[in-house]
Every structure is written in structure tokens, then in C-alpha cells.
Amino acid sequence: MCTTCGCGIGQTLIAGHALKQPRKPGEAMRYRVHEEGAALAHPHTHQHGVLDGVLDFGAGAAGTHAPGISQSRMIKIERDILAKNNDYAAENRDTFSTHGIFALNLVSSPGSGKTTLLVKTIAALHGTLPIAVIEGDQQTDNDAARIRAAGAPALQINTGKGCHLDAYMVGQAMQQLHLQDNSLLLIENVGNLVCPASFDLGEAHKVVILSVTEGEDKPLKYPDMFRAADLMLLNKCDLLPYLEFDADLAVDYAHRINPKLKVIRISASSGEGMTEWLGWVAMGCRNATHRRTESPA
């Protein structure tokens, strides 16, 4: 499967229910059923050239495909592989802007403190504006349950073997969440510093969370994510006295990858730096509301 994160094809569930999949091939598109169960268990050996030339499996029953009489033609496509995702992301972004919703996509390695940060953020902003959360994890409803306990509506997306949220999943989840106008939408992506970097969800910003219990060189090891983000939260700073982690070096590495990256040092546990983070969020919400009232749809 995928070498970096070991993902595969898995069934995506939103709040425990299967996702409507627009992407499954319709019956008419099915080619034909073949060698039941053979190929999935082990890698192919890439001998298609041989198969094509000699046996030509696709040629249909009566061997109408004699060598030299090829009906082949070429079709130019030139389409970005992620174009479909980008289309869905554009739809989400449209919805956000017409409703004045400020949407953030929180990305990090597993366990760097995303859910803890969200819980603290919800508690701090309670009563000031409507907040909703979309939780992405491969399995379990645990994180959504933690968010609900903190007082915000939350929808859990389980990606199964999938390693990231995509814009279609988020669009489906948004419909079920009944987002309010001028609200804050926090999306916790699957804990993974690689794949979520490539999938635009329609968010205003990706926020990357790096915790001080990881290595300083994470930004160099996972540059795509740090390049895709607009804000980095350096979390668990309460632990700095007990660690050899060089915070300045970590920030320096992050700026090598992305010189414009804004950095806030926080501790979701102790509350250090939370005021600055909350201020940044509040400003984003104000701007989103503002843009909506200035350009009524």
C-alpha cells in the first residue's frame, strides 16, 4: 500500500454511517470480473506489456483483436490528479464564505495535542460564537466524544484505512452538522504529517501542531506540511524544562521551509500562549464575518 502511512482502501464512516460514494464506478463502467481474489494478496509483477501483447485480456470473447489491426486511439487529458478534490474544496470554501464561517484544518502527527487544544479552545470561546468540530480518525468516536463533552457539536469521520480527510468527506459532514452563520469550524485531521498536506478541504488555513516531545527537525523531515500551513503551534511548551528540545532551532527549521509561517508557542495543558492563539482565531472569525456582510450573496 502507501509506503509512508500504510493506508489502503477502507470504508469511510461519518458518525458511524457509510459515506455516499460518488466515486465508485457505475455498473455500466465495469469491465469484467476476473481472476477472483488473485491480485490483491501480493504485488503484481508488472508484466502487463507481455500480457497485452500476447494474450490481450481486454479484447473480448472472439479474439477480434488481431495483431496489427488495432482500434486504439489516444486521448489527451492533462488533468490534475487532485482536481476532483480541489473542486469539492472550492464548493466548501464557497459555503464558508457565503456563511461567514472561519474554517481551520488542524494537522499534526498522532498525539501532538490537537484534541486537547480544541477542548481548551472551545471552553475559552464558550458563549462568544458558535463552534462546530469535524473529527477525523481512522477508528473510534473518542475524540468527537471529548469535543461534545466540552460543549460543542462534533461529527466523527472514521477514514478506516485512509490516512487523511478529503474535501468530499468534509462536505458531507458539513451538511450533517448544520453549520451556523458567522461560526467557527475546527477540523481535526487524521494524525499524520504527510498526506493531509496535499488535500485542500476548503479551509481558510492549515494549522500545523508540533509538540516539543517530537524532534526539532520534524519540519525538515515533513516539509510539505510545514509549507502548506499558515500557522504553527509549538505545543507542550510546559515540558520544555524537562527536555533537551531546542525550541528556537525547531522554529528556525520551520522558517527554512516556510519563511512566512506564523509561530505561537503554547501549552494546551497549562494555558501558556493560549491568549495569542485565541486572539488569532477571533480575528479570523471577525474577518470572515466581515467579508460576508460586505459582499452579500
Binding site: M1, Y31, L40, H44, H46, H48
Partner: peptide
């Protein structure tokens, strides 16, 4: 683009199975 070509080839074969691009050359 941080794509592992070998991995993509393997996934390609699996995903194209029984589709209109069954056993297509990549």
C-alpha cells in the same frame, strides 16, 4: 510531489482491477 512510484504502481494495479482500465499499462 512526494509520490512513491513503486507504491503507486502497485496501488494502480489494485484499483484498476475490474474497471475499464483493467490491466492497463502505466
Amino acid at each position: 510531489a512526494c509520490v512513491e512510484q513503486e507504491s503507486l504502481r502497485f496501488c494502480f494495479d489494485v484499483v484498476m482491477r475490474d474497471s475499464i482500465a483493467h490491466q492497463a499499462r502505466l
